[in-house]
Computed example of a mutant assay.
Amino acid sequence: MHRLALSRRQLLQAGAAASVLTVPWAPAQKAAATPLPAVGAPYPLAAVPLLGGGRFEPAQAEGRALVLYWWASWCPFCAQQSPEMQKLWAAQKDRGLRMLALSIDKKPDEAVAYLQKKGYTFPAAWLGPELAAAYPKPEGLPVTVVRGKDGRVVQAEKGQLFAEDVVDLARWL
């Protein structure tokens, strides 16, 4: 009997493919699939009202690495990655990491309730129709994009990241 050995990259790709096929998209996300931003491409930012109060302002990310993380409370892959994102945030925010988690839940209240239930403190916003134009969600879920200190994309991933992959995002600090 042969054993099938898959690399981590193959597992990630399979998970991303599965998430694309099985995720029930909100109507706003059905229109056109947005590709991942290209590594090296500039990534402009817009001001965002945060779910916990306050605002994310683009100036907060100037000269700093910013992790953008599209997620949903109903996404099983996000449920695995979000605790790792919280650990990354807690460990690296004082070193200059910036994070903006963008919920694609149908209602902001669903995202707020989920964040509170799980005790997540990373900066999160609801990707409503107005915000979707400024931060179009790439195809797949979860999606993680890292904007480097120079304002350009340094990493873009669709599908669930493993714990060690999330920890490795700190290399961009």
Rank of each mutant, 00 (worst) to 15 (best):
R147Q: 12
L88I: 01
M99R: 01
A163L: 05
F77G: 04
A170C: 05
V154R: 00
K106Y: 10
C75G: 04
Q160A: 15
Y43E: 04
A156G: 10
E164R: 05
W172L: 01
G159M: 00
R55V: 00
Q92E: 15
S82N: 13
A125V: 07
M99E: 09
I104Y: 08
K87R: 15
P42S: 12
P138L: 01
P49W: 12
V153N: 06
A156P: 06
A111V: 02
K117P: 04
G148A: 09
V153P: 01
V39T: 13
D150I: 07
F77C: 01
P44S: 02
A91C: 13
L97S: 08
V145Q: 02
A163R: 07
G40H: 11
Q116T: 13
L115K: 04
V67Y: 04
P136A: 07
Y135Q: 08
L115T: 00
A32D: 14
G52Y: 07
L115M: 13
L36H: 12
L45P: 05
P37M: 03
K149D: 03
A47G: 13
P42I: 03
Q92K: 14
W74Q: 05
V167S: 14
P129G: 10
A59L: 08
V167E: 15
P44I: 13
G63F: 04
Q60T: 06
T121V: 13
A61M: 01
P49R: 12
A170E: 08
C75N: 00
L115D: 11
L161T: 03
P108V: 00
A125W: 08
L169V: 12
A47T: 14
G40I: 05
P108A: 12
A90T: 15
V48K: 06
P42L: 10
V143K: 00
V146P: 11
A124M: 11
Y120M: 00
V67P: 09
W74T: 02
A101H: 10
L131D: 11
A41P: 04
C78F: 00
A41D: 14
A163W: 05
A170S: 15
F56L: 00
P108M: 00
V48T: 12
G54D: 03
A32F: 09
P136S: 10
E130C: 06
W89R: 08
L50P: 15
E164S: 09
A72C: 05
V67Q: 09
A125I: 01
D150L: 06
G148P: 05
R152Q: 05
R171H: 12
L51A: 06
P142T: 06
V153R: 08
W70Y: 15
